[in-house]
């Protein structure tokens, strides 16, 4: 893209906020009451997380990502955004990766603060983000993004599960949710939408938590193995 510096966020927005919100509403109506099942799955993931049994949650998350890839990106969002099919592929790959992680990873004990950060992120994606949209007054309850149904809250909950997990596959699986948190924020910012800061903030919290964890692990390793 030539003269890329002359492009603003709004140049990448192909649709009006009204069209986008109606798209969510029509999608929500068409799949009702799947939202109840999705939220129930989210609560199960949270409970598993509280009991430090996170791998089973990864399996549920993987299914959610696959569903969103097909139902939201493929069937809905792609009708107004040609880039949605690429995002759908990324979501499908993430879904497969999470399913693989559920089978191939192993449970590890994490530091309490890291577990706490993960739970806060999960709660944010599961409850705080939909509430924020409702309380903004800009979205009706039919237009709210729900975990397991829409990408933004699902990405945040996924961060919540992955951040304390550790291991190579879990770390790789962090990439797509983190990227999506930035994309989601940029999209809502371009539309002046409610809570545009929420997903990027969740992403930043996740990154800080991982970096802090890596730093403290390295530091402990350095102290445990003093130079000879």
């Amino acid at each position: 893209m030539s003269e890329w510096w002359t492009y603003g966020l709004s140049d990448f927005l192909l649709f009006s906020p009204r069209t986008y919100v109606r798209l969510i509403e029509l999608y929500n109506l068409s799949i009702w009451p799947a939202q109840l099942a999705a939220v129930a799955a989210g609560v199960v993931i949270l409970v598993l997380q509280l009991r430090a049994v996170r791998l089973a949650g990864l399996g549920l998350l993987g299914l959610c990502w696959l569903w969103i890839a097909w139902a939201w990106f493929g069937q809905r969002y792609a009708t107004i955004n040609w880039a949605a099919s690429y995002a759908g592929l990324a979501f499908a790959a993430e879904g497969a990766l999470l399913l693989a992680a559920a089978f191939l990873s192993r449970e590890r004990s994490s530091e309490p603060w890291l577990v706490g950060t993960g739970i806060v992120l999960t709660l944010a994606g599961l409850f705080a983000l939909p509430l924020l949209e409702l309380l903004s007054g800009e979205r009706g309850w039919k237009q709210v993004a729900i975990f397991g149904i829409m990408p933004d809250p699902t990405a945040i909950v996924t961060l919540g599960v992955l951040v304390p997990l550790g291991g190579r596959i879990a770390r790789i699986a962090l990439v797509v949710p983190l990227l999506w948190c930035m994309v989601a924020g940029a999209t809502l910012l371009a539309m002046d939408g409610p809570g545009a800061w929420a997903a990027p903030l969740a992403g930043v919290v996740g990154i800080i938590a991982i970096v802090a964890h890596l730093w403290s692990t390295r530091r402990r390793g350095f102290i445990a193995r003093p130079p000879t």
Partner: peptide
């Protein structure tokens, strides 16, 4: 932007 309304029959 204005005519990119997807399959939304109302729009």
């Amino acid at each position: 932007i204005t005519f990119n309304v997807g399959d939304d029959i109302v729009l």
